[in-house]
Design a protein around this nucleic acid. Structure first.
Ligand SMILES: [Zn+2]
Ligand SMILES: [Zn+2]
Ligand SMILES: [Zn+2]
Ligand SMILES: [Zn+2]
Lengths: 155, 155
DNA sequence: GGGTCGATGATATAGTGTTTCACCCGACTG
DNA sequence: CAGTCGGGTGAAACACTATATCATCGACCC
């Protein structure tokens, strides 16, 4: 995520989305979301915990994991499996109730660690087709593409 | 993996592939590969360690992780990130030297845990295209599709 | 013999995630 | 009002996954 203004907007969209879905974005959950959005790159649970401790000294692993579970459940953050880290959804608030997540893919730069979320329809379609050809009913797909980002390639 | 005969064949192909590449498939590495291939589903490193201990009492985490590193490096096994588990490559031995891996995708059944490797060209192509559109040079992609397998859907 | 290199043994430690029990508080109920 | 039920949080311990470090061994070469 980027500028403070962008984060503020994302937080407000998150509040709206939660309100629409009848989910409670409590102060703790909102704070964890804020930390995720404020990180320069996908951030690990224990890094989040460290930052959380400055304002909540009693915080423990379950504190952050429970908040992350909520945020994941409601599509406000995603987990990057290859990094064991979490990143704010770049298109949050556009899901309906009971719609836990949307098709998405990550581009992870090997050089600088920057991670960008994309939502490529052709990729999602190809995946659904490939699964169907194997008689498989696809529900959700993790797509994490590692390589060199445009910025790093330019240097 | 499946039948003992299939495993035997995969092991022999692995030996050939290593010979071609000048890599040493030592007894330890071969045994770990055998354990991975013999598992019913993707198997975790510590589960491998437990099984390994029956014949090598002194085995410790680095024992199995080093063997896995070798097998991963040479494309004989893959890691399933969503499961923190390892699975034998269903198309091993078809890579050239310095070719660490081939495009592949996994279909993971939520019900029974069965995990199948596929190598769908359309998916790989769509991913490369999507990355290129973002100015990104894709090097490797993790694609893990979760859903319901044909067998489970039939019940 | 001495030197080097890759593989393994062995111990300790780091990083990631879960279980469990307790407490609080707001809502609903008799 | 007392009771109770649920979700959210606090707190401690634990389980699971992976790596760092140093020592040892044997093969190969000079
Ligand atoms: Zn998203
Ligand atoms: Zn970069
Ligand atoms: Zn493969
Ligand atoms: Zn199944």
């Amino acid at each position: 995520m980027a500028e403070a203004a962008t984060r503020e907007k994302a937080l407000q969209e998150a509040e709206l989305a939660c309100a629409r879905r009848g989910a409670q974005l409590t102060p703790l959950r909102r704070q964890v979301l804020e930390l995720v959005l404020g990180a320069e790159a996908p951030i690990g649970a224990y890094a989040l915990l460290d930052r959380l401790k400055s304002s909540r000294p009693g915080a423990a692993p379950p504190t952050v994991y429970r908040a992350l579970d909520f945020l994941l459940e409601h599509g406000l953050v995603h987990k990057v499996e290859r990094l064991n880290a979490y990143i704010g959804c770049s298109d949050a608030g556009h899901g309906h109730a009971h719609d836990h997540g949307h098709p998405h893919q990550f581009l992870i730069c090997r050089r600088c660690g920057a991670t960008m979320e994309i939502a490529d329809h052709a990729v999602a379609h190809a995946i659904a087709e490939a699964a169907a050809r194997a008689g498989f009913v696809a529900v959700e797909a993790t797509v994490e593409i590692e390589g060199i980002c445009a910025r790093c390639a330019a240097t």
